[in-house]
Write a protein that binds this DNA or RNA. Sequence first.
RNA 1: CGGGGGGUAGCGCAGUUGGUUUAGCGCACUUGCUUGGGGUGCAAGAGGUCGCCAGUUCGAAUCUGGUCCCCCCGACCA
Length: 567
Amino acid sequence: MKMTSALIPTLKEDPAEAEVISHKLMIRAGLIRKLGAGAYIYLPLGYRVLKKVEDVIRDEMDKAGALELLLPAMHPRELWEKTGRYSLLGEILITYKDRHGRDYLLGPTHEEVITDLVAREIRSYRNLPKTLYQIQTKFRDEPRPRFGVLRSKEFIMKDAYSFDADQAGLNRSYQSMYDAYRRIFDRCGLRYIAVEADTGFMGGDVSHEFMVPAGSGEDIIAVCGSCGYAASREVCGCQDVMVNDKSKKPAKLKKVETPGVSTVEKVSEFLGVKPISLVKTLLYKADGNPIAVLIRGDRTLNETKLTKYLSCGKLEMCDEKSIEEITGGPLGFSGPVDLKGVRIIADYVIRDMENFVAGANEKDMHYINVNLQRDFKVSEWADLRYVEEKDACPKCKKGTIKLKTSIEVGHTFKLGTKYSKALGANFLDSDGKEKPCIMGCYGIGVNRIIASCIEQNNDKDGIIWPLEIAPYKVIILPLNMAHKETTDIANRLYDKLTASGIEVLLDDRQESAGIKFKDADLIGVPIQVIIGEKALKQSKLELKQRRNKEVTLVEEKDVADTIRGLL
RNA sequence: CGGGGGGUAGCGCAGUUGGUUUAGCGCACUUGCUUGGGGUGCAAGAGGUCGCCAGUUCGAAUCUGGUCCCCCCGACCA
């Protein structure tokens, strides 16, 4: 492609709308433009990258034996009613009525459609296992689209679904996808970590997220510095840690005035103690039933863990009114002492605490020197807190946890029979019995691969594409367009490389050398062929690698071969 | 949805105590010359319903009310 015929609108300045590096560079390098919040245009250069990523995915999915198909984006509402997800997903769904008044939605994911298909087309264990996949646009009315293509309302997902006759089959299918995912992300030049994860609205039990640690991102993962254990922070278990000196004698329980002082920070400051010596009491309603959760003042309750522990559907914090009804005191002064008629669940972290501070269920009053057993009793103990930096590793117990901001590029789930049962995806097994298919599902955020790749591969000058997904492999830079020898060589080389199947961009613009260098670096093409009078004096061209800026002098006749050696 | 910031030329911004403003600056764009190894220099141009609507006023980018959109921080996920 010649620059003069291309549409690669590069920008000198950072766009005001972008905050994170990948977003800035995608706009500056002429990969994308925004249409509206969460909706992006892929310009020709960006679309080339997108297609490269899709090709890598297709290649590995096909190698893993998955079958590509294409499902509609428009789904009838009834299908989603059958699995109960129409109301579960709620406002995320983009819905509409067709001209006949029938309810439709734009697919945010495709378990319903694929399972419905399998229910109709697969009848025998002889047809299993099957893994089906597609690469297609998904629609989710995200409450807050952000970071460019990292979270958009419309995005491209590779989604795969496996159907097996038994659990062992699912395990094989799952492993096969897991391995394919590793190869895909490797080939896309990503440094990633596969972590144990929460299943969220997908359901199922086992789940892994493929996380790309980056300067920005919306997810936090917990990684053990010594044994390599890694998990999503949402599900990472917490080790018990002794913090208090058990030798201290329980002091006398005392009620103290704390006027207007209700938050952990304020209470600890007011009483001259650290948050670690406070117990906060959080009131929730789980499927409408009130519960009290006790956690140490310096820790954060993990609602994912709580929801899982309670096996409840809807978990919400109590409002001020119900807090008063439950505890008899106002918001900010709740405590476990004399708290009656409520199920009390405590995080393990408070088991070792002594002489701590807690609310007195009374306006402007707290207790000090509160002690377990003597002053109140806890009937249920659970791991309910978020893991923090420097916590002990839940697996090896020795190492300490590090938290890393990451981008989720892939997620795999062992779904089990949730969807096959709901939609009647049954098959006749060899024993003559009808059974539901055992399912797995596997997603990759295609746009996110691009953004996270840029997050990990850039410098002050721009993007540094890994070869496999670079929009072009080579860019030819004739520095002086007024110099005939330069342009002759450039054209000859362009024709030769193009003819030999190498994707090459020729910067044939009447621009100064500086502009060409800047743009070439910005759009990040891996190999630059610089044609300048300096090296031409020795009858040489310069081959420069974008990643390390290494330059080698090469004769024109050897350029093609040298490049092939680098690819 | 809650909290914060913002909409002025393609991009980045200034102007906002109402009136010398005919609305500016830098970059980009057009034409000519120039330059040709890290965003070359000079000159001449083109480009705007100041987000939108309504109001106040002799006069509104500037004040008032409404409305739409965008960005950032919190509750969701590929």
